[in-house]
């Protein structure tokens, strides 16, 4: 394993440690008593106090933090106060919706953005370029959740091609499950695709002006072939950076869109956990979001090294 990889893994661990501390502190500060959440507002104060002791809430914060993190590392997530099921299973179940949703959305974003961005860059200044730029400007201004509602109006209410909301479940077959993810993924992808298309366009334009592109043409490659063989990979360095940031945006956008489509994903779980004051669940869900974001950043760093041989040296 290279020093590069070790260094990145250490950074990843340190970031997660910092994130877990911040999340623990924030949730500590939040009002609400888990014991009271479990027993209900009319419960006997003595019973609440007893439960607090049993749940370990009377221990000092440091001990509780260590117990929490230790439990997570040991695969022991505890039981949700409000759902009365093991949190580990609950998270896995919800992640099985949010992760595919984000992945499909990211794939859509990438496909749309790269083709539109490269198209516009290759025809800089043409009517096609102007049209792409205008559309992306519009795409950035459209709220994702409103676009989602429009999609529902057209494809669910009018045409009936896709469900207006809810999740068929993976048990219903991959086709049915994916069908419930199509509209949310499109809605999620729109804004990000508009942003990424603009980034791609300027990255490609920058690369087109590089000396090595002229060399590629001097070898006898056509404009198009030079762009595909030599230009795109160089432009990808900038594009991948933004894609990493966008994946974080996509998970955040999923929180809103899962509510639009009533998808029982991680975002909806976070929303519900907070409104029900299920603090232990809140802590784990928010940390899981952080893990996803940090893991994606780690992958982006690895991708850099794959794309650009110079990265290993400078790291």
């Amino acid at each position: 394993m290279s020093a590069f990889l070790v260094r990145r893994l250490l950074t990843l661990a340190a970031t997660l440690l910092a994130a877990s501390l911040v999340i623990f502190v924030v949730v500590e500060v939040l009002p609400g008593d888990p014991a009271r959440t479990i027993l209900g507002p009319e419960a006997d104060p003595e019973a609440v106090a007893a439960l607090r002791v049993r749940l370990g809430l009377e221990r000092p914060p440091a001990a509780r933090y260590l117990a929490w993190v230790g439990g997570l590392l040991g695969g022991e997530f505890g039981v949700s106060y409000t759902y009365h099921v093991p949190i580990g299973g609950l998270l896995a179940e919800r992640l099985a919706i949010t992760l595919p949703l984000a992945a499909v959305a990211m794939a859509l974003t990438t496909a749309i953005a790269l083709s539109a961005g490269v198209y516009a860059a290759a025809r800089r200044g043409s009517a096609g370029d102007v049209a792409v730029m205008a559309l992306t400007q519009l795409g950035i201004a459209v709220p994702g959740f409103w676009f989602a509602i429009l999609l529902i109006l057209l494809f669910a209410v009018e045409l009936g091609w896709f469900p207006a909301g809810g999740f068929a479940g993976w048990d219903a077959g991959i086709g049915a499950a994916l069908r419930s993810l199509v509209l949310p993924a499109i809605a999620l992808a729109l804004v990000q695709a508009a942003i990424l298309a603009r980034v791609t366009r300027s990255a490609v334009i920058e690369v087109l002006d590089e000396d090595f592109m002229r060399t590629a043409r001097a070898k006898g490659l056509s404009r198009r072939a030079a762009l595909w063989r030599h230009g795109l990979r160089n432009a990808l360095v900038a594009v991948v950076t933004v894609m990493g940031l966008q994946f974080a945006n996509l998970t955040a956008g999923a929180v809103v869109l899962e509510n639009v489509f009533a998808l029982p994903g991680l975002g909806r779980l976070a929303f519900q956990a907070i409104s029900q004051r299920d603090l232990q669940l809140v802590r784990d869900v928010v940390l899981l979001f952080a893990v996803v974001v940090v893991a994606v950043n780690f992958l982006v760093d690895l991708l850099y090294a794959v794309i650009d041989p110079r990265v290993k040296l400078s790291a």
Binding site: D211, F212, T215, R217, A218, K219, G220, L221, D308, R310
Partner: peptide, 22 residues
Amino acid sequence: CRLRGQRLAMIFQEPMTALNPL
């Protein structure tokens, strides 16, 4: 395109930037 690189060839001033870094 058929002529370039085959019958006509060119070398440039700055070999660092004229070669594809990747």
